[in-house]
Simulated assay, not measured.
Amino acid sequence: MRAAIYRGPGDIAVEDVSKPEIESPTDAVVRVTHTAVCGSDLWFYRGESDREEGSPVGHEPMGIVEEVGEDVRSVDPGDRVFAPFKISCGRCEFCRKGLHTSCVNGDSWGGDNGGAQGEFVRTTEADGTLVRVPDRYADDEATLEAVLPLTDVMGTGHHAAVSAGVGEGDTCVVVGDGAVGLCGVLAARRLGAERIVAMGHHEDRLELAESFGATETVAARGEEAVERARELTYGGPRHVLECVGASSSMDAAIDLCRPGGTVGYVGVPHGVDEAGLDVFSMFQENVTLRGGVAPVRAYAEELLADVLQGTLDPSPVFTKTVDLDGVPEGYRAMDEREAIKVLVKVDH
């Protein structure tokens, strides 16, 4: 089969590799039809995080089940499925508590199971990981493109909103205008927020945020952005969604949060250790920090139900579409901010 392979910073190659096969009774092999390039992929692409050269990449698969192990009960060959960015068993202590990202039997997509930016993947825990799309939608392209963000960015944005405690009638601020931040806007609206302020640096993305439900936007930078967000929320919101992960965005989220409020953070941390976290100001203002890596499998069914009934559509975050050979171009486009998120359609 063919798959995208990391060859070093700035270098993604599409190569012939071994097709994954059933190795355990709990395995399933999925023929990938749709996948994506994620903003978190850019960290290793830019050389800002470690990754083994020669490893397959991608963690947002959707496709058709090709083969299942003898113990698999939830899906059959021929089923349309999607999978979160983290493989999970669904039966351990942490999965039962909705914390699938801490699964004791968990796995990633980047090892010998194929990588999700390729023609096939193997999930080591099919029953706990794969989410079946009803047959009536299995070939509905518009619906499938709306479902695909549930593999990562929509579930992650939702986790930010849930962690921040967003509810009916609330005011919140979303820090970040990438795909996760934009999905955070959708999630806050879905949870009933009355006012949603989106903060970012790109006018086109902030316009998309408005179409997703943001009532105001802030395009300023630094302290000016924090002050503007405070003005719009009459001294700061009680609910802040941090959807970037940089030290500057984390500082901004904490700074503008109203005393007694909560910051829901889901951005993959980079540079926070070096810059330090202002714990003392959080202590003084009783600001709560909640979140972490999003257990998107825990949210999959409820978000899927909304997509299928037409009340949730995160597909506009895909602003560029490529085929498998175009994956290297997809990375370049996202790295240079020419695309918010890249959709990959895999032909067989």
Rank of each mutant, 00 (worst) to 15 (best):
V279K: 00
L256A: 09
A253H: 09
T233W: 03
R290Q: 14
L277F: 14
V279Q: 13
P295G: 00
F283G: 00
V296F: 05
V244R: 03
L303E: 10
G261Q: 10
A275E: 13
A229K: 04
G292C: 06
V268I: 15
G271W: 10
L289A: 07
V293S: 06
R297V: 11
V266H: 09
R238N: 05
P237Q: 09
H239K: 09
L241D: 04
R228C: 04
E231Q: 14
A253R: 06
A246I: 01
Y234W: 10
R258L: 07
V287C: 03
G291K: 10
C257D: 03
G260W: 13
V268W: 14
G267S: 10
S248G: 00
S281M: 08
V279S: 07
G292S: 07
L241Y: 08
A300I: 08
R238P: 00
A298L: 06
T288C: 01
V268S: 04
D255Y: 04
V279W: 11
C243V: 02
R228A: 11
D255R: 14
S249E: 07
G291A: 08
E285Y: 13
G271V: 08
G264L: 08
A252E: 09
A275D: 07
R230Q: 14
C257V: 14
A300V: 12
V279R: 08
R228S: 11
E242L: 05
D273E: 15
A252K: 03
G261W: 09
E231R: 13
V279H: 06
M250H: 10
L304S: 09
L232D: 05
G236L: 02
V244P: 00
D251Q: 15
G276I: 12
R230W: 02
G264I: 08
A294M: 13
E301G: 01
E285G: 04
G245V: 05
D251H: 14
G261L: 08
E285A: 12
H270M: 04
Y234L: 10
A246S: 15
T233C: 06
G236N: 02
G267P: 04
L256S: 07
E231F: 03
Q284A: 12
T262N: 13
D278N: 15
G235F: 03
